[in-house]
Write a protein that binds this DNA or RNA. Sequence first.
DNA 1: AGCAAGGTTCGTCAAGCGCT
DNA 2: AGCGCTTGACGAACCTTGCT
Length: 329
Amino acid sequence: MAWPMKMESAAVIQQAAYTAVTYPENQIILALIASLAKVSLTTGHTSPTGPTVTLVQLPNGQTVPVHGVIQAAQPSVIQSPQVQAVQISTIAESEDSQESVDSVTDSQKRREILSHDPSYRKILNDLMSYVPALPRFEVEKSEEDSSAAATPAITTVTVPTPIYQTSSGQYIAITQGGAIQLANNGTDGVQGLQTLTMTNAAAAAQPGATILQYAQTSDGQQILVPSNQVVVQAASGAYQSCAAPAGTIAPGVVMASSPALPTKDVKEEVTKKREVRLMKNREAAREYRRKKKKYISCLENRVDVLQNQNVILIRELNILRGFYCHKME
DNA sequence: AGCAAGGTTCGTCAAGCGCT
DNA sequence: AGCGCTTGACGAACCTTGCT
């Protein structure tokens, strides 16, 4: 078809050149574009209110001011997935492909969400490490990280998560309010839910203290209690917890620790330490695998982005080839 | 349904690294 | 040096799939 074309072709050339020059890996394409079209691009300044005006000098010496169609120099797709998505959708629309529009919209949304993901940003930064001129994403601390940071040190160090599992598979969660919830492992978890009410007399952690203590439930099972809490058994038989001033126990209260835990038994101590270590490592392994999965999914998304970008560039190259051949005739 | 092969998930161990 | 965290490797248990 005949180009209504000077403007459009110039815009395409400029867009292609811009796209290519933005990504170092596209230098070959850029060289090809330059050799094919033999155009020189002069990007005008962007007024605060108006669009960029780009002067495109065509091989015959004619200078074409290009408005509107050519967007002002914008951040690279590689920097920002959202921008890439816009570019893709523009071209997809011109291709009259509803399917690709839909998929692009989906991926746009997906990338928009992902762009806020620290793992994704880290990947992007890694990928951009060979493009020093381009700005980096600031890797945000994830929610878990920030929440972990806000957690008092004593809690994190001694008990990473207040959920414990007994030797019989029961799960024990110690809530913020100090209640102990018991849940049976397996399908009947709800049925087996029990609650031991605990009164947390002082929320403040005692820094530096590492106390391993076990409370015994009604069915004789031992449970691990955070080191900043002392579990005592009141006269009524109810279990209570209070802040544990390091090494001191209020007189007159009966410790509910298991009789099977003689404090001077080194073997027991070693066993308990090992259990804590295993529990921590178990949690760490879970967390590591979770992060790994997230990272892999981000990489997969990155593959999608680059594949789309590749399609765009090839398309633009073909257009330019056609334009060049047309000019030569 | 039963079985085997392959895949996935999870817990554990151990090495390495950074921090104090 | 000791400690805690991260991460690769390994094995066990469980799940999925294809075949008979």
